[in-house]
């Protein structure tokens, strides 16, 4: 056990824990955009910088392990000023779209901007991914991408790479022109993306959106929300049911404890609880590359064999 002080509060933490996790365990929240409890820390957003032992050089809370006797300040005026500047840099490169953004209400950038009083662009200059918000990849029936909103936190890449055989996403390019690309910078449709939705579940902003939720125009704060488990296999991946009026949609939740998430599971949950059975799509290899094609629910859920068997058995017993 390690004893340290955070914001004057004496706390105990396990050896090897990061400052951020130790703080969080004691209800002290440190802002972070690239941190995810289920992923390795990237320490790229730099928002979680904190003061350690009074030194002028701040350290990232997500990547700094706790040490006995450590004295951490998470909210000094200097630290808050750095965070404000970092948020400003992000907003200088972010379209002003909170009014119509699907992510509004649960967007971390919006949340911290509010908390730190940072407004949209103060600096006229180059903008990555265009001036206006727009979906830059609408090829997938399940996922919408808007590169203009991407803050390059890298969580989508990390979570996709957690399953070796997926690893569809990567950073591409360099510096200011860095972007997230699928395979060789292909559309989600043309790429090897399996539409599991892991990336959507971890995206802190509106860069990756669940298309079926978006199309029902339900934002989380106005919906009744409930977490359920998928019963398609023993993993039991978690999904959230969003209910507004008579509409009910589902979306995958960030996977933990090695749960994979998959399209079949998603459709299984959809079939089970969503208010409307919308056409399922599956990917097929064609001469022109990979294409999403309509399919039937029975095929999508791989029920044909079972249904045949049931029908056969029942007709047998009827005899």
């Amino acid at each position: 056990m390690i004893k340290l002080t955070i914001n004057g509060q004496k706390i105990a933490a396990e050896d090897g824990m990061s400052i951020l996790d130790a703080a969080l365990a004691h209800g002290i929240e440190i802002p972070a955009l690239c941190h995810d409890p289920d992923l390795k820390p990237e320490s790229s957003c730099r928002l979680c910088l904190v003061e350690v032992d009074g030194r002028p050089w701040p350290r990232v809370a997500c990547g700094t392990p706790v040490r006995d006797g450590m004295v951490v300040e998470t909210n000094t005026p200097e630290i808050r000023e750095i965070r404000r500047d970092i948020l400003q840099l992000l907003l200088d490169n972010h379209p002003n779209d909170c009014l119509t953004c699907q992510k509004a209400g649960e967007c971390l950038l919006q949340k911290y901007a509010y908390e730190y009083g940072v407004t949209f662009r103060t600096h006229e200059g180059a903008r990555r991914g265009g001036e206006r918000a727009r979906f830059t990849d609408t090829s997938s029936p399940y996922i919408l991408r808007d590169e203009s909103k991407c803050i390059l936190c890298g969580k989508c890449i990390s979570t996709c790479a957690e399953l070796n055989e997926r690893s569809v996403l990567s950073f591409a390019g360099r510096g200011f022109e860095t972007k997230v690309a699928a395979d060789r910078d292909e559309t989600l449709e043309a790429s090897t993306c399996v539409s599991c939705g892991r990336c959507v579940a971890v995206c802190p902003v509106g860069a990756l959106i669940d298309r079926r939720v978006r199309e029902k125009k339900i934002r989380p704060w106005e919906a009744d929300r409930q977490t359920i488990q998928c019963k398609a296999c023993e993993y039991g991946c978690e999904y959230e049911v969003l209910e507004k009026g008579s509409e009910r949609v589902i979306r995958p939740l960030s996977p933990s404890e090695g749960r994979p998430l998959c399209l079949k599971g998603r459709l299984f949950v959809e079939a089970e609880v969503s208010s409307e059975l919308r056409t399922p799509y599956k990917k097929e290899e064609t001469e022109k590359g990979r294409k999403f094609v309509r399919t039937t629910w029975i095929e999508a859920l791989e029920l044909d064999g079972i249904l045949d068997r049931i029908a056969h058995t029942e007709s047998e017993s009827d005899k």
Partner: peptide
């Protein structure tokens, strides 16, 4: 030459 990973270097140097 900025690698583009962290916010201050990627965005700040450009500004």
């Amino acid at each position: 030459e900025s690698c583009g990973k962290c916010t201050p270097c990627r965005e700040g140097t450009k500004r």
